[in-house]
């Protein structure tokens, strides 16, 4: 599966050092309808069976679809929250970060809503660090302006590598291994991080 392949590909490429607390990470997919950001986020979730709280706003759901359980796998049960406003998404994420039983809180926000300002990201980051639950904010069609997120990722997809085995079949080009260029946009040590 795509996620697994990506995990192998990225082994050692950005592993979180042990002992580092979970925090808020922002992901900016280069193309709004690209699912590689979702795959990247899933590959970095902790290896537990804890559930994920997944909050989506209406436009993200309409434009980029909903996460499909059949593709994501059953390791983490998902609690899906469908909302219409970005302010509600942020409220639900903050509320979810009070619960330490979760593996992650994932929020998808479309564009640059006024509710998602520096203060809002700061609140999410602090809550996330206090509860030690990783928090992912997937921002589509958004401009990466001021934010308190400790990690910020810009993610795009690259064409597949063609494998020699596949090349042997001339008329049919197959999909090879996945590679994703990752750009860690801002990884600054802020407040207490080693």
């Amino acid at each position: 599966m795509g996620v697994l392949r990506m995990q192998q590909k990225m082994a050692g490429q950005g592993e979180r050092p042990a002992g580092m607390p979970h925090t808020l990470a922002e992901v900016f997919p280069a193309n709004p309808s690209d699912a590689s950001a979702t795959g990247f986020m899933l590959s970095r979730l902790p290896r537990t069976n804890a559930p994920i709280l997944w909050v989506q706003d209406r436009l993200s759901r309409k434009e980029a679809g909903r996460p499909a359980l059949a593709g994501i796998g059953l390791r983490h049960p998902i609690i899906m929250v469908d909302l219409s406003r970005a302010a509600d998404v942020l409220w639900a994420m903050e509320d979810g970060l009070r619960c330490r039983a979760l593996a992650a809180v994932v929020g998808e926000v479309w564009g640059d809503p006024p509710a998602l300002d520096f203060t809002a990201t700061k609140r999410l980051a602090m809550r996330s660090e206090a509860a030690d639950v990783s928090c992912w904010l997937i921002r589509r069609a958004a401009s990466p302006d001021l934010s308190a997120a400790r990690d910020r990722w810009r993610i795009a997809s690259l064409p597949s590598e063609t494998t020699s085995a596949r090349r042997a079949i001339p008329r049919r080009s197959a999909l090879g291994a996945r590679s994703v260029p990752l750009a860690a946009q801002q990884a600054r040590p802020v407040g207490g991080h080693p």
């Binding site: 599966m1 699912a35 759901r61 679809g65 909903r66 996460p67 499909a68 593709g71 059953l74």
Partner: peptide, 15 residues
């Protein structure tokens, strides 16, 4: 009990 996935399926689906 849940069903099992046999084929590769996309990560995201459009409604």
């Amino acid at each position: 009990g849940q069903a099992v996935v046999v084929k590769e399926r996309p990560l995201r689906l459009l409604d």
